[in-house]
Computed example of a mutant assay.
Amino acid sequence: MSGWTAAEMPSLEGETVVVTGANSGLGFEGTEAFARRGASVVMACRSLERGREAAAEIRQSVGDADLDVRECDLADLENIAAFADGLEEAYDGVDILCNNAGVMAIPRQETADGFEMQLGVNHLGHFALTGYLLPALRASEGESRIVTQSSGLHEQGEMDFDDLQSERGYDKWDAYGQSKLANLLFAYELERRLDERGISDLLSVACHPGYADTELQFRGPRESGSSLRMAGMQVANAVLAQSAEQGAWPMLYAATADTAIGGEYVGPGGLMDMRGSPEFQQSSAASRDEADAERLWDVSEELTGVPYDFEAL
């Protein structure tokens, strides 16, 4: 995949792609790239207003973009279920699901269902959404893919199953690292469970964007009211970050490239894995802990109330 860019994406005519967090950052860039290749893109956004504004902006550069903006609040299980129901009513199948949306290093908050916000949005919301959409993914013709966005900061994450919701103590970066580690444990375990059942036309691939200049870095400082941290992020993004467009390349590769492999981890291959063209990479040993992956899976099904019925696929 040396030197791969979004320019090498194949035609996606006739395919349906779902992107969470599609109105900004990596999700926006991914949505535009998918639309440019002819896909019908469902923009799953927490804010319909911001989603529609983003869709209008994309149509300025991709005049025939087929975009469907729908509300999907990953911090609300009832809302996720309603989104999935609406999608299945409107579409015959889903070819690509990009579990992209996320929050990073924010003050402690809880989702509508009482989950710590970073774990709730970054992992549990996507776990529920993927479970609901499995039948639609299987209903698509040919191969379909689930792409889960993690982060290099998963390497600092630890699964604290005794205090998963950070109720006894909260550190915003520890919680973020745990949520990104959970993304990888989920992505790899999903691929194993698909393989065990001989489901070879549905792939689960993980990725990370490196250091990309997006709005994600600024939500934490903004919600903390820290002008110093805001200024620091602005400087770091200007000096170190690659563009959001380039940051989306690993996700786009994982979603569309013929050489992408289920159960693999894709990220930028340049300076300190922070920028450059995508390549297969090694994630942390903790992310490959199958016992933790099984435990997280069981806990996630219990917390979300979304069982994965593979036998019905």
Rank of each mutant, 00 (worst) to 15 (best):
Ala291Glu: 05
Ala182Lys: 00
Thr20Gln: 12
Val299Asp: 12
Met233Gly: 14
Gly38Ser: 08
Glu215Cys: 13
Ala33Tyr: 07
Gly102Gln: 06
Leu97Asn: 03
Phe83Glu: 00
Leu87Thr: 03
Asp85Thr: 10
Pro307Arg: 10
Ala128Pro: 01
Ser11Arg: 12
Gln217Val: 00
Val205Gly: 09
Ala55Arg: 05
Ala182Leu: 04
Glu301Gln: 15
Asn122Ser: 05
Asp85Ser: 14
Glu167Ile: 04
Val69Lys: 04
Gly142Met: 07
Asp92Tyr: 05
Ser11Glu: 14
Glu116Phe: 01
Ser283Thr: 09
Ser150Cys: 13
Phe115Leu: 05
Ile58Gln: 05
Gln242Tyr: 11
Asp213Leu: 11
Leu190Lys: 02
Leu194Gly: 05
Asn100Tyr: 00
Ala56Ile: 05
Gly305Met: 09
Thr148Ser: 14
Glu13Thr: 12
Leu252Gln: 03
Gln118Trp: 03
Glu189Asn: 06
Met43Asn: 07
Lys172His: 15
Gly21Val: 00
Arg138Tyr: 08
Ala236Asp: 11
Val266Trp: 05
Glu311Phe: 13
Ile146Cys: 11
Gln246Ala: 11
Phe186Asp: 07
Arg138Pro: 04
Ser166Asp: 12
Asp195Phe: 11
Ala81Pro: 09
Gly142Tyr: 04
Ser151Lys: 06
Gln242Ser: 14
Ala248Gly: 13
Ile261Asn: 15
Pro209His: 02
Ser166Thr: 08
Asp258Ala: 14
Ser287Ala: 12
Ser204Ile: 02
Gly269Arg: 12
Asn100Asp: 02
Phe115Ser: 06
Tyr188Leu: 05
Tyr211His: 13
Glu215Gly: 10
Gln234Glu: 14
